Amino acid sequence: MRASDLSELAAFEAVARHRSFRKAGEERGVTASAISHAVSNLEERIGIRLLNRTTRSVSLTDAGGRLHAQLLPAFDGMGAALDSLNQFRDTPFGKVRLNVPNSIAPFVVGPMLGPLTAANPDLEIEVVATDRLVDIAEEGFDAGIRLGESLREGMVAVRINPRLRLIVVGSPDYFARRAIPETPHDLKDHVGIQNIFPNGNRFAWEFRKDGEAIDYWPTGPLALDDHELIVHAAQGGVGLGYVWEQRAAAALADGSLIQCLEAWCQPEDWLYLYYPSRRNMSASLRAVIEAMRV
């Protein structure tokens, strides 16, 4: 096989995985037009169309799907072979791509980045923070971080720090107008800022105490998918916010927010760093895990 053949197959595999010429180009460090040219050369050489292209989307033809399925084990094997060379290095080498929820990234990943990169100068870490639920294998990530309840089958999961919890906060000005709730049942008399996922779905505020579990669905006029915005809105007296405790720490410390219902806000499920079970763990990913594991 010629080097150009392998390059064209690698370009096709990246496009097939990302369903995007732009994302494939970003992953491989070239332009989208270079990726498109490589795939077109491959299609012309084999005489079969592998991709359906429109101005808005890219999809696999039947032939493209079959080729991609057969290429995956080969590329995984080559990746594992290269990763195995790390055992001959004194320190981990290469890039680790992590997917982390945006709402928790600053206090989950942030603290470990400096010490980890200082201890491993040949290690590259690429973090993509989004609250969108991502298929890490499909989108080319080495690993992801999620709560245990949202992990998919076929993943190896490693428990990591810190353990988080969601709390209810409001501003002094807000509580000057309304009594501080003593139980979740009192929230019916309050305005709550609705929490939404990037896909628009809302989620309930969950409370537990002495074996009693209560789900509260806020009905306030404001719905936000970013915890930093929720903190600012709560500071402005819009209503009560339901946010990660670490997100509100500075506002609680300076008095611009007041926490309530603390006894009802229990720690969340553990966080996990997870990766596909079919992949051999590289020394680089192992270094990241060791920096974060419980």
Rank of each mutant, 00 (worst) to 15 (best):
M1K: 12
A3L: 11
A3S: 10
D5C: 05
H18N: 07
A32P: 00
S33C: 05
L42Y: 12
L42I: 08
S59N: 03
A63S: 14
G64Q: 07
Q70I: 08
L72A: 13
F75G: 09
A81C: 05
A81R: 00
A81D: 11
L85H: 06
L85I: 11
R89K: 06
T91F: 10
T91Y: 05
P92A: 06
L98M: 08
P111G: 15
A118W: 06
E124M: 11
E124K: 10
E126C: 04
V128N: 09
A129M: 14
R132P: 00
D135R: 11
G144H: 08
L147Q: 10
S150E: 10
R152S: 14
E153N: 12
G154F: 15
M155T: 13
V158Y: 02
I160V: 12
N161Y: 12
P162E: 03
V169F: 02
Y174H: 03
A176G: 14
P181R: 03
A213Q: 05
I214G: 02
G220A: 01
D226A: 06
H227N: 07
H232E: 15
G237M: 00
G241V: 01
V243A: 02
W244C: 00
D254H: 08
A263E: 15
D269M: 12
R278A: 04
R279G: 07
